[in-house]
Design a protein around this nucleic acid. Sequence first.
DNA 1: ATGAAAGCGCTAACAG
DNA 2: CTGTTAGCGCTTTCAT
Lengths: 319, 319
Amino acid sequence: MTVSRAFKRDSSVSRETRDAVLRASEDLGYVFDSTAASLRSQRTDFVAVTIPSLNNANFADTVRALSEGLSARGLQILLGYTNYDIHEEERLIEQLLRRRPEAIVVTGGKHTDRARQLLRNAGIPVIETWDWPDEPLGHVVGFSNAQSVREMVDHFVTAGYRRIAFIGGDDDRDTRGVERRAGFIAAMKAHGLDASRLIAAGAPPISMREGADAMGRLLDSAPDTEAVICVSDLPAFGALSECQRRSIRVPDQMAIGGFGDYEIGAVCVPSLTTINAFAYDIGRKAAELILAIRDGKPNVDAPARIVIHPELILRQSSR
Amino acid sequence: MTVSRAFKRDSSVSRETRDAVLRASEDLGYVFDSTAASLRSQRTDFVAVTIPSLNNANFADTVRALSEGLSARGLQILLGYTNYDIHEEERLIEQLLRRRPEAIVVTGGKHTDRARQLLRNAGIPVIETWDWPDEPLGHVVGFSNAQSVREMVDHFVTAGYRRIAFIGGDDDRDTRGVERRAGFIAAMKAHGLDASRLIAAGAPPISMREGADAMGRLLDSAPDTEAVICVSDLPAFGALSECQRRSIRVPDQMAIGGFGDYEIGAVCVPSLTTINAFAYDIGRKAAELILAIRDGKPNVDAPARIVIHPELILRQSSR
DNA sequence: ATGAAAGCGCTAACAG
DNA sequence: CTGTTAGCGCTTTCAT
């Protein structure tokens, strides 16, 4: 018991005793066993997190913020990626819950029925992010992807663009991408404009290369297009690069909009008009929420609805 | 016991019994407790992985390959990031080892003395990656960063460039970056060339923006520079963008080389000469090694020395 | 094919 | 400030 207390810096162990314990541990090569501690105390200090892909700077920012916020309090992230597939997500959630995390943060608001049931029954805080679900499972830190793109379309129309295309994924796995496309279509129709210039760039996540290829097809098939909105800054940069290869001036001959405010959009020439979804803030606020619930803050009984307001950033790729 | 066997698909449980158990579990909302299983069986099915940063496509590729290779065998990754700091790495390794991972994969070959001791005493396979340490702790899947950059310098010199600069970090935290700079200096000196055009771009990881700023300072202070080699493709792209802003033609007036073969280098205009370090292969081979050791393959008693051969990729940013 | 007994390494609860 | 007892939920081992 004294060793146990010494390791968790319990104030009832004298300084000398604790130092002696820690010194002896170092000599013996003893390493504290969290597995046993977790079993007995029923506290794992794990927070499970699922993201669609590791190779995405937006989600990486969210996870980084979560990690920074939670590690300060001794919580460790148990990370899994779903590859943009809700069935893979279901399997992953089942695996993660077996580790008895104390909270779970998922990306997106669309899940299989069984995943929803697993999450509801888990008895831990569930936080859905990067989305604004109709029927949240618990807490939400997110925004409407459709609404964000609608605002960009509105801006483009106000700026005088009429023949606007959308470059996105060619299947419905990326639910945030689907929402963004739906927002594009709804906004175009609201303006009485043709919403049929939809270019399928490949399976999500859409890469720079796929964005470039999609731009090539768009220029071949609908050369009178005046502007294109892309599902993320990555294909938007690819589209820009294709314009450069074809000596098409951006924004004079073609305006381009992206999504996500990736670093590349701020640095490239011309810089990219985009939408900042505040990826880091999403993670930071999710971490704060988890810690508040853990501390039993009085007003956290009701599920939180933390809304992020994505910001339209106007840069050189549009006028 | 029957429930326990049913959950691990033990053949000695009849089909009907197993199905009944699984159905009842679903009805009751039972979720298997891996913590208890781990404690009793002394097998956690965890593999610990440390990387400098989550927001880096190269390391993300390595982790993705690890994850894909290991999850097929039921192993879960316990990921931590060191923020390019070996003291942070020491703290992280200590935390991770408490979870009793069955192997640990670390990025880099430089660690604090205490971290080295912790890793040696852990009694699990240790794999150092992305480096070629003088005194490996165990297994290695990596390459010499210095040698890779030397080859790029050799190529640039053969192509006729003489006044060559290097853009890298301004402290020694990123040990791979330090190695790359050392390789640059050694190669320049070997050719009898001036190796003093070293631009400090900021604290690692060096961003696109920092690369652009560094290029600006280089052009201001040493406008006769003919070529620049960057510690990664990210600052290399930033440097390219700065040249574009100043209407400096690449590669005619300035050649640029990067490192890491990030997607941007293949897509941007002009495309970037770079070095492919085969990030995905590093993770894949580390995963294969872990599985081979786990299966007790006969010839895995000696520490593995798996060498990756980075490849120089010549593109439009150099001639 | 199924079950009983013991114990993995900690910590909660209680005692002093 | 330190120690004793019991037990977290599984799996190992042995028995039937």
